[in-house]
Design a protein around this nucleic acid. Structure first.
Length: 276
DNA sequence: AGTGTATCCTGCAGGC
DNA sequence: TGCCTGCAGGATACAC
């Protein structure tokens, strides 16, 4: 599933092509991705034109001329695929859930195999309220190491769980959470408030580095992520711990271990990442 | 406050 | 080849 870098790559690709497009109609293939009645969704979108495309955390936000937005959470397997005209045959996305048809003839597919993603038409204040409940953007200017130190000190959650909590920090998913903890030398189960200040500085830097590098390369494709043009992510750096259980740590050679925290895998080097 | 569990879905890899 | 199990980039509700 897409995390922040993948959502950012999608946003950049879309922005170049759909701003000022007018939505002729919205077709909903699978209603279970909606969080509101069908007509509130389709009625809100039809006839609107797109003024901007933004990202907030892992969400793609399509700003409309009415001041309202189409908010898309990509879930585990969601992506947005844009075509200049209706695709036929083998080019047609395999798991369309919502299809936006533009006045120009271009077509945008919200494709989502597992349908854990969501699509929502929201008035601007409703979206704002939602956004306000999310934590800071890790790549924003204002997100300093000092802010991260302070926020970490307020929680006893394991550091990996803390990083995944969108209310604490926005856009971090399981891949980059694990990678950043490795770079900081912090064990995933370490309580957030037991992360030292110097470690938090490394975590802040490591997180921003790994996110920036992934964005620069157009995202990471593990299984099914594609950008708006249907291309795989080019993030070629070897993941250092994620998915590497049993493989040697690139620093010390010890086998990478896997543990489960809050029902999700965490990967770490038992030597390089200190539990306390 | 924080955790484990279950749930929503489909697909794929690996073991037999 | 087929069947079965476990696992997957997310998020939420629940009981404890």
């Amino acid at each position: 599933m897409p995390e922040l870098p993948e959502a950012e790559s999608i946003v950049r690709g879309l922005r170049a092509h759909v701003v000022s497009e007018s939505i002729r109609r919205a077709d909903v293939i699978h209603r279970d991705v909606l969080r509101q009645p069908l007509r509130a969704f389709t009625g809100g979108l039809s006839g609107r034109s797109i003024e901007r495309v933004k990202r907030r955390g892992k969400n793609v936000i399509i700003g409309l001329d009415s001041g309202s937005v189409l908010a898309i959470n990509l879930g585990m397997t969601g992506n947005l695929l844009l075509f200049g005209s209706a695709p036929r045959g083998g080019k047609r996305p395999t798991h369309p859930t919502v299809i936006l048809r533009f006045a120009s003839g271009a077509v945008l597919f919200f494709n989502d195999t597992r349908r854990f993603g969501t699509a929502e038409f929201l008035q601007c204040d409703a979206w704002q309220a939602r956004s306000d409940r999310m934590g800071p953007e890790p790549l924003s200017e204002g997100y300093t190491a000092a802010r991260m130190v302070d926020d970490l000190s307020r929680s006893r959650s394991p550091a990996r769980s803390w990083l995944l909590d969108q209310r604490k920090i926005a856009g971090v998913g399981n891949i980059y959470a694990n990678e950043a903890l490795y770079l900081a030398g912090v064990h995933p189960a370490r309580p957030a408030n037991a992360v030292t200040e110097s470690e938090a500085v490394l975590l802040h830097q490591g997180l921003r580095d790994v996110l920036n590098r992934a964005i620069a390369a157009g995202g990471t494709t593990l299984r099914d992520y594609r950008n708006a043009d249907g291309e795989v992510g080019g993030y070629k750096i070897r993941l250092r711990v994620y998915g590497r259980e049993g493989a040697p740590c690139l620093e010390c050679g010890r086998a990478i271990e896997r543990m489960v925290l809050s029902n999700r895998s965490a990967f770490f080097c038992p030597v390089c990442q200190l539990a306390r």
